[in-house]
Computed example of a mutant assay.
Amino acid sequence: MELTQAQLEQYEREGFLFLERLFSAREVAALDEIIPELLAVQNFSGLRRDEASGHVRRIHGTHFYCERIRRLARHPRLLTPSEQLLRGRVYLHQSRFIPKFGLAAPAQGFPWHQDFPTWHVRDGMPGPRAVVVAVFIDEVTAYNGPILMIPRSHRLGMMTCDDGPVMEGYRQLTVSPEQVTDLYNAEGLIALQGPPGSVLFMHSNLVHASSENISPLRRAMHQLVYNSVENACANPVRPDEDAARDCTPLHVLPEDCLLTPANA
């Protein structure tokens, strides 16, 4: 699947592109049924728990032990558009699962931040030539902790400060409340909502956040981060699930790759 020129221009202008129902109900079901498999791997270093509740907050590196995630990363509806957006071949920098179970297993949200500065400061990624791709497994509503984004904020470069909360073993690079307020007054704010199977392509410098999900509704997402092969991290010090060292370009799989047997 190739993006149109209008879609490419929208991404460059707004910092994101949202495509509703890009995956069918059968494909979403295939991505939903692997969630217990992901949660069952308890000794994996990519498993990150909420410090207050102990519930799973997110899992990094899901492609290391899940074949269907490896296929998702090479799906033509994700890989081809990402290569267009990044103008060339890409590799998988990160894979992650964010469950947001809601009241059944509460966990804190994510503060206002940009993704690229962490990769630049912690791992030596040269530039923001990475795209974050989120696949909706559940319907995302105003109630279950949608991603909040400030459109066009990716044009301003790195805006982070290093005085954010300590989460998951290191101090977060966050965007200050004053900066967020100024950005909101200038550009507004979007709470991204949509049906299962929808896909978000987000620029790695776009300012975004999400709150804790305190609704009874789960908000699960599989996320992939594609990085240009020309933009590999210079000195990754974090584990592979946070900063991939394998920069082999990905090759596209057939359209039905999520629905074929695992040994096919």
Rank of each mutant, 00 (worst) to 15 (best):
E2V: 07
H113A: 08
H55V: 04
A232Q: 08
A134D: 08
H251C: 10
R57P: 00
T160A: 02
Y91H: 04
L250F: 01
V207Y: 07
L200H: 04
E83R: 15
T248A: 02
S211H: 03
H63T: 01
G88A: 07
H113Q: 09
R49L: 15
P99V: 07
P216R: 02
V132Y: 14
L189S: 06
V121L: 13
S53T: 15
G109W: 03
L258N: 11
V132K: 14
E187F: 15
L3M: 02
Y184M: 11
A232H: 05
G169L: 09
R219E: 04
P195D: 03
P261K: 09
F64A: 14
P165C: 07
R152A: 14
L259M: 12
L206K: 13
S211C: 06
R77E: 09
P261Q: 10
N43T: 15
L253S: 09
R122N: 13
L192P: 04
P165E: 05
P165A: 06
N185Q: 12
V90F: 05
G127V: 12
E27L: 04
Q94K: 10
Y143V: 10
M125P: 04
R21K: 15
C257K: 09
V140T: 11
R245C: 06
P216Y: 03
D123M: 08
L103H: 00
R68D: 04
I214V: 13
Q10F: 12
P76D: 08
P111E: 07
I59T: 08
Q179S: 14
A186T: 09
N144F: 05
D256H: 13
A29R: 12
L3F: 02
G54W: 12
L17G: 07
A6L: 10
P151N: 12
V207G: 08
Q7E: 14
V252P: 02
G54V: 10
S210H: 12
P36D: 10
L8E: 12
N144I: 05
R245F: 01
L8K: 12
C161L: 08
C233L: 04
L39A: 12
L259P: 07
R57A: 15
S204I: 10
V140G: 02
L17T: 08
R68M: 03
P76K: 09
R58V: 07
